[in-house]
Amino acid sequence: MHINLSGKTALVTGSTAGIGHAIARGLAAAGAEVVVNGRSQAKVDAAQAAIDKAVPGAKLCGVAADVSTAEGCAALLVAIPRVDILINNAGIFEPKGFFDIPDADWQRFFDVNVMSGVRLSRGYMPGMLERNWGRIVFIASESALMIPKEMIHYGMTKTAQLSVSRGLAEMTRGTAVTVNAVMPGPTMSEGVQTFVADLAKQNGQSEAEAAANFVKQHRPGSLIQRFATVEEIANMVVYVSSKEASATNGAALRAEGGLLQTIA
């Protein structure tokens, strides 16, 4: 199967690093014109340069906007009024005990992880429905179904993303627009690399040992018994963004290494 997204414009929020950057690179390699987004112009410019180097001839533009705010989303919609593919990837995580999570953190996580996708979907989806083609993908997590006790606030936002995604999919009935969610498991993004490096220092281990021990101790149900790469997650997202994925709609697609011990 050859995925060709030529002629399509894709916006990937939070695409200056990690999974979002890999998704942007994958969509560009498939021929899409990709809008790179981050909070600072310097990071957006650096991400564009990295993708351009990895994908010679890539069609790219960048918009610096903080999508955790209504103002940032509005600015992005003004700068890029139409997209064919919207990847709601912007997100944050932080291990913190439930009794230590203040109200401000609950609100911050909800604004970044949930409301960014709500606002941008509200802005872009009507045009997709009018044109009768579009793809919206929410980057959720296995934590949406297996709520981690060490970051309940994060798990709450990922469950909310599944609800929003499925609800929006119901609005596409009879059209060529699809809305889906992808659920990565533990993935070795830059943020996780920093987390693993800190664990390694705390426990006097190498980073490889710390990563392996984290999966064994905290995600023992993993069938692949390792962190996924950002490219492995991006592959799923590029597929579900494609014309070839036209029969996949309203789904919560797993890329979590077999952590979830259910068949549905």
Rank of each mutant, 00 (worst) to 15 (best):
V196L: 06
E170W: 10
A245H: 15
P56L: 05
N113W: 13
N180R: 15
K96N: 13
E142D: 03
T194D: 07
D105P: 00
S165T: 14
N37M: 07
E130G: 13
E142I: 05
V44P: 14
S246H: 12
G31N: 09
K216V: 07
V238R: 13
R226I: 01
P81F: 15
T194P: 00
V55I: 11
K96F: 01
C73M: 05
G18C: 11
V34G: 09
T262E: 03
A247W: 13
A251G: 14
T157V: 10
G7T: 12
Y124C: 00
L223V: 01
K243W: 07
M125R: 01
A30N: 13
E244Y: 14
V182S: 10
I19S: 04
N203V: 03
A228M: 04
T229K: 06
E244S: 04
K149N: 07
N235V: 02
R25A: 06
V55F: 07
Q225L: 04
S246W: 13
V192C: 02
Q41M: 05
T157H: 09
P95G: 09
V182A: 13
V55N: 09
F110S: 12
I139L: 14
D84L: 15
T178M: 09
A90M: 02
R135Y: 10
S165G: 06
K158R: 07
I92A: 01
T262L: 08
A10C: 02
I3Q: 03
V34Y: 11
G72Q: 08
S116D: 02
V137A: 05
R108I: 00
W106I: 06
A30Y: 13
F227G: 10
S40G: 00
Y124A: 08
A75P: 11
N88F: 12
A144V: 08
Q202M: 02
M188T: 03
G57R: 08
G155Q: 02
S163F: 14
A90C: 04
M156F: 13
W133K: 12
T175D: 15
S68Q: 15
V67W: 07
V182G: 05
A42P: 07
K243Q: 14
A54Q: 12
I87A: 10
V112K: 05
T9N: 12
A234P: 10
Y124K: 05
A58H: 10
A140Y: 01
D198N: 15
D198G: 12
R82I: 06
V44I: 08
I85T: 11
P81Q: 13
W106E: 02
R39K: 14
L76V: 09
A70S: 11
W106V: 09
K216F: 00
A144H: 00
